[in-house]
Design a protein around this nucleic acid. Sequence first.
RNA 1: GGGGCGUUAGCUCAGUCGGUAGAGCAUCGGACUUUUAAUCCGCUGGUCGACGGUUCGAUUCCGUCACGCCCCA
Length: 510
Amino acid sequence: MKNKDDNGTGSGGDEGGDENKLIAERRAKLAELRRAAGPGGAFPNDFRRDALAGELQAAYGERSGEWLEANPTRVQVGGRLMFKRVMGKASFAKIADRTGQIQLYLQQETLGPAYEAFRGWDVGDIIGGAGLLFRTRTGELSVRADQLRLLVKSLRPLPDKWHGLADTETRYRRRYVDLIVSETSREVFRTRSRIVRYLRDFLDALGFLEVETPMMQPIPGGATARPFRTHHNALDLDMYLRIAPELYLKRLIVGGLDRVYEINRNFRNEGLSTQHNPEFTMLELYLAWSDYRDIMDWVEKATRGLADTLNGTLELTYQGRRYDLAQPFPRVTVEQAIIDNNPGIDPLSLRDLTYLRKRCDQLGIAYHPDDGPGKLQIELFEKTAEAKLLDPTFVYAYPVEVSPLSRPNDADPFVADRFEFFIAGREIANGFSELNDPEDQAARFRAQVARKEKGDEEAMFYDADYVRALEYGMPPTGGLGVGIDRLVMFFTDSPSIRDVILFPHMRPEA
RNA sequence: GGGGCGUUAGCUCAGUCGGUAGAGCAUCGGACUUUUAAUCCGCUGGUCGACGGUUCGAUUCCGUCACGCCCCA
């Protein structure tokens, strides 16, 4: 690029080939800083803060100018320069730290050479300053700086201070810029953290043990999904990134830990969408001596508790629609949900393969010749009912055919004691009474393997060690998986999963 | 994989019925000692996503590709 020869550092950080005049100007300023720098160089690390902007606003935001004058409070603050207004021999600067922003008032007669230097600093630079708190004529709490230092020279200009960063691609690819300029985005990730902490606290209070199970697995299990493959060189062993931790967590139930959970990443080698990222965060928990109804109760309680803890209310808005979590969450069967959303369907033929195929054909749903009535029911459900489940709703009684790890229902062996939980038309959680009959589990695995051999890449592998674990005896257990990303989407009013993942999966930049 | 939309200055966006482009903010220079998207004056800044085609001439029309967003499978 044409600016490469402006100074001796022109080749640094130029991988993107996006050098321009603005960056060149800043590089020149940095070069001058390097020349003039004393001990500590151009990137000193001897400045420390004794106050944070947000805490100062909280502590002194209500104090009058007179009070501040009568009670001199000297503070040392630092952060990123977010705007500067130079008015001749005095200037205003606002700096941002992790807690908020605070304004500095800078005067030439007080600061001398540092003031002259400041005139050349740029928005985005990281600076430190110290002085007494006061209130400006217009009433803004500010620091009358008597010390001022440039700590880090920023070489790249920030987005427009008013419009911010609107380009979604840049927001995702350069999340650091998004976080610098968008309080909304920062708040999403703070909320995400609070959600995870709430769930941990909730489970810890119930005596759950948080555990970590393998991410790299020789046999990927616990879900029907295509895995990512990898290879262990020393063992010359093909391995898979986990699609779920389920089978390991249930081994721990066999081991007697009784109440375990894990919050961590799963990996599924599938497409991307507003609701799918190849790696996503799941909470899985297993509670011995419980069944799927207990788990539903837990989900309902935790969802409400989460809303109350985050917002202090059970009402919230997601994408313009009002949600009232105080209402009991309805519980409907899969078949009832199909009936409710398919006018004219024959309720007595919902397990009739020929009839279901005909309905699927009418709706343009593709299916495999080996799909049985249970699989076709789920196809129908997903096509016609799922998106309409806006208010929090439990759908239960999933066909055993599509629930290879779930316990069959005692009264109706066509279905399993399994539910899924929906909000805003999206699956948020999936839970069931765990299948603890090792011989039934072995038969289910064999059926899955048969599907896989016929080309179903999502079908499960046979996990002999898991069957062996069940043969030692697993207590009656209820289990649950919660899609944390989707939960965060709901509680942060985010339309896309990319908005709640710091670094969402993207194609490499062109 | 299919369909739709998008890609123009650092950022946010206009625009060119085909004749190599503008605004606001930012930057740069100047004025200004309490500003709040500060104000005032002046100046810069672009391979119009990439590659081909049509054309005297393409940022504009056509095609292919790349990346992104949305919808569908």
